[in-house]
Design a protein around this nucleic acid. Structure first.
Lengths: 225, 225
DNA sequence: CGGAGTCTTGACTGATCTCAAATTCCGTGG
DNA sequence: CCACGGAATTTGAGATCAGTCAAGACTCCG
């Protein structure tokens, strides 16, 4: 099992602010896990006993709305922490986490994290900054959901995915999402998402290679109204 | 000018976790301010030099969307802190703050807050918990915006306002909002908000006393589909 | 008694949802 | 290697929801 002190992944999240001693202690009680595509990491309402440090892969965080549809609220990627919010607030998770591809994660028990939060102000401030960023992102999403059309939201989602999750050698988006996932991100019916994607394709804004989507005209997508 | 050490308002926010010495220091450099209804506390994009502790009144936090409409993201009430997110992330504010009624606030300079955050883990953890709660609220709002109808969202907004901001002796909602404000909360056109409110009134779910709204049938509102 | 601003209602248009019916894709078993 | 069945995707058509524009009513204030 790897050692946290030497793990490069921590550079990308708040764990980098822990001291060497703290990392060694965490290293001793963490557990590594492999999670397969489609597997549930935790359920909505589940009490989390720790946080996950994502070493590889991507997962979606979603919430079931009263009308029975899933809404994807956030996607978490390699390098980031998962479950911090629930651990900090002490509440059960308000979201479900599902792997979007094969993942490798390290599970760090709740007590370790909490005690570091209360003892290491630098670490705690770092987590605070992460959450401040998340909060700003959420505000933006709220405004988009409330004020923009499905077409605009889908265009922005595609751009966001390309910019944040990267692309394959052939230029296609590296994250493979079903049409239903796209609909869940945008907050619309699956058929509506499909229709808009078809339209983008007809207009030459995107193309498809197998099941993968490739952005052909970034500026065009940005200008969608 | 009042002393923070003795101020009861701090019971309701993270400032309660500061030590007596820290409070005395803050008390020495804070400034009290009165803000009139409708006045702008800070603009979107403005760099904040501190946080506001709200001693009395309510304000709305909104963001201008690209289509020119304001979206209210959150309302902040007596007892809560305003501007923490921007101070922590070090970014300019992503929201505009406008007083919804006459307010009394204390302004605490940025440096004081930051230094306390970095030195007092209990305070820092408290702020962390506040933000964790805000984040959960935001998730819920995203799902509602994406999946619920205008009618449902407006019904929930009315219930939220009653539960969180209280009511006048005659049972009307104590916060007086314009129809445009309601539309901005729900994320819809002013006319749509008006129409739905009229409908609620016809159906006996709410009534109006002057410009004030009174909830007549709470269960009815909860059952709106 | 005028505005100016807010509120209300009507009529129309466009966006989105839903239900239904093809069509394509893909893994499994023969 | 191919046929088959189920799932995902695509398209169509009609119904519903919500946005826009326009006009009139109401309120507040000087």
């Amino acid at each position: 099992m790897g050692k946290c002190e030497q793990c490069i992944i921590k550079q990308f999240n708040a764990l980098k602010s822990l001291t060497k001693d703290e990392l060694i202690r965490i290293s001793g009680c963490k557990s590594s896990k492999k999670i397969k595509k489609g597997e549930v990491i935790f359920e909505e309402g589940e009490v989390l006993n720790g946080v996950y440090c994502i070493r590889d892969g991507i997962c979606k965080l979603s919430k079931l709305s009263e009308n029975g549809k899933d809404q994807i609220v956030k996607m978490v990627i390699k390098g980031q922490l998962l479950g911090q919010r629930s651990i900090i607030s002490g509440q059960s998770s308000n979201l479900q986490a599902v792997a979007l591809n094969d993942m490798e994660v390290c599970f760090i028990p709740k007590n370790e994290i909490i005690s570091d939060l209360q003892r290491n102000p630098k670490f705690s401030f770092d987590v605070l900054q992460d959450m401040a960023r998340d909060l700003k992102d959420s505000d933006d999403i709220i405004v988009n959901m409330a004020q923009k059309t499905v077409k605009q939201r889908l265009a922005e989602a595609l751009i966001y995915i390309q910019e944040n999750f990267g692309e394959n050698p052939d230029g296609t988006l590296s994250v493979l999402l079903s049409r239903e996932d796209y609909a869940s991100i945008v907050g619309t019916a699956t058929e509506s998402a499909i229709r808009v994607l078809s339209q983008f394709k007809r207009e030459g804004l995107i193309s498809t290679i197998g099941k993968f989507i490739k952005i052909e005209n970034l500026n065009g997508l940005k200008r969608v109204e």
